[in-house]
Amino acid sequence: MAAEQSRLSATHVLEYPYRRSVGPIMGRFLTGLRDRRISGVRTGDGSIVVPPLEYDPATGAPVTEFVDVGPLGVVTTWAWVTTPRAKHPLTQPFAWALIKLDGADTGLLHAVDAGSADTMKTGMRVKPRWRDERVGDIRDIVCFEPEGS
């Protein structure tokens, strides 16, 4: 048998190019982002859910009332990403965080550009950094950043 040749290796990409309809509730949230507005919904017990849900999680009733929140908020929990991956929103190290926007009762998951893990703190105040060209997508918010920056 001939001397063994080196084994072949290649990048293999599997991609499903889905386009997803968002419905009237998420559609309104995304449309708001395009106008730098962050909207949630009020549920039966009076709490404000952001991003909005189509149905009250406690009763299953459809939600009808939209409420604008933020744009500032507070970090309630976070995880530091030391090595961002290709599809992450930032190329430098950042935090994934749950952000409770002012007026909201739930956390919105987003990236926080805090510079270093030492700067990140639960309870820190953050503000959105908006993308210049907004299209109605969660990435219209590039990330959140410390309030004073």
């Binding site: 084994r7 072949l8 290796s9 290649a10 990048t11 293999h12 990409v13 599997l14 991609e15 499903y16 190019p17 889905y18 386009r19 997803r20 309809s21 968002v22 559609g27 309104r28 995304l30 449309t31 395009r34 290709a86 599809k87 109605g136 997508d137």
Partner: peptide, 18 residues
């Protein structure tokens, strides 16, 4: 109003043929 978004699933593998 926004009615749809692009939400691709993108999986990148390193395939070794054996």
């Amino acid at each position: 109003p926004v009615t749809a978004i692009k939400a691709p699933v993108h999986l990148e593998f390193s395939y070794t043929a054996g």
